[in-house]
Computed example of a mutant assay.
Amino acid sequence: METWQVVLLGLIEGLTEYLPVSSTAHLLLTEELMGVTSAGRTFEVLIQLGAILALLTVYAGKLWHIALDFPTSATTRRFVFAVLVAFLPAVFIGVLAHRIIKEVLFESPLIMCTALVIGGIILLAVDRIKYKPRFTNVMDIPWTTALIIGFAQCLAMIPGVSRSGSTIVSAVLLGADKRTAAEFSFFLAMPTMTGAFAYDLYKNWSILTPDDVSHIVLGFIAAFVTGVIVVRHMLDFISRRGLSFFGWWRLLVGGIGLGVIAVLH
Rank of each mutant, 00 (worst) to 15 (best):
K62W: 07
W64P: 02
W64F: 12
A67Y: 12
L68V: 14
F70R: 13
P71V: 07
T72L: 10
S73K: 08
S73D: 12
A74R: 11
T75M: 02
T75S: 07
T76N: 00
R77T: 04
R78W: 02
F79E: 00
V80T: 14
V83Y: 04
V83C: 00
V85P: 09
V85A: 14
V85Y: 03
P89Q: 01
F92D: 01
G94C: 10
G94R: 05
L96H: 12
L96T: 14
L96C: 13
R99G: 03
K102W: 03
L105G: 02
F106G: 01
S108H: 05
L110E: 10
L110P: 03
I111W: 07
I111Q: 02
C113T: 09
C113M: 10
T114W: 03
A115I: 09
A115T: 07
L116P: 05
V117M: 07
I121H: 06
I121D: 08
L123E: 09
A125M: 14
V126A: 06
R128F: 07
K130P: 07
Y131C: 04
K132Y: 13
K132T: 15
R134K: 14
R134H: 11
T136N: 13
M139F: 10
D140Y: 03
D140A: 08
I141D: 00
T144Y: 09
T144V: 05
T145P: 05
L147Q: 11
I148V: 15
F151C: 08
A152Q: 11
C154I: 11
C154R: 10
A156L: 06
M157S: 08
M157L: 15
I158W: 03
G160I: 01
S162N: 10
R163Y: 08
S164Y: 05
G165A: 14
G165D: 06
T167V: 04
I168S: 11
V172G: 01
V172P: 03
V172K: 14
L173D: 07
L173P: 12
L173G: 12
A176Q: 00
R179H: 08
A181N: 01
A182N: 11
A182S: 15
E183I: 15
E183S: 10
S185R: 04
S185C: 05
L188G: 08
A189G: 15
A189Q: 02
A189D: 04
P191M: 05
T194D: 01
T194G: 15
G195E: 06
Y199P: 08
L201Y: 11
K203Y: 09
N204M: 04
N204L: 01
S206H: 14
I207H: 02
I207W: 00
I207T: 07
I207V: 14
